[in-house]
Amino acid sequence: MSDRDEHIVEAAGRCRVVIQNGRVVDVGTPQIDDCPLARRFACPVDEMTPEAIRKNIEGRIRSFGMCTPQREVLAGPDFVIFGASELLSSAVRRGDLDAAVIASDGAGTLVATNPALIQGIGGRMSGLVKTSPLPAVIARIEENGGAVLDPATAVIDQAAGVALAATLGHRRIAVTTASAAEAAVIRERFSDAVIVAVHTTGMSREDAVLMVRAADLVTACASQHIRDVAAKTALLQAGRSIPVFAMTPAGKAIILGKVAETGQQIVVHGARLPVSGRESPSPLC
Rank of each mutant, 00 (worst) to 15 (best):
S2G: 13
D3M: 00
D3P: 00
C15M: 11
Q20I: 09
V27M: 04
D34T: 11
D34E: 09
C35E: 02
R39Y: 09
R40E: 15
V45R: 11
V45P: 11
D46M: 13
M48P: 07
T49Q: 13
P50R: 11
N56E: 14
I57Y: 10
G59I: 01
S63M: 08
F64G: 06
R71N: 01
D78K: 15
F82N: 07
E86P: 00
D96M: 03
D105G: 14
D105I: 04
A107P: 06
A116E: 10
L117I: 13
I118M: 12
R124N: 13
S126K: 01
L134F: 05
V137I: 11
A139E: 14
R140L: 13
I141F: 12
I141A: 10
E143N: 15
N144Y: 14
V148E: 08
A159C: 15
T176D: 02
T177C: 01
A178Y: 04
S179W: 00
A180I: 00
E182M: 02
D192I: 14
T201K: 10
E206S: 10
D207A: 08
A208R: 00
L210C: 00
R227Q: 00
A230W: 01
S241D: 04
I242A: 06
P243M: 06
K252H: 09
A260W: 09
V267K: 14
G270L: 04
R278T: 15
S282P: 06
S282E: 12
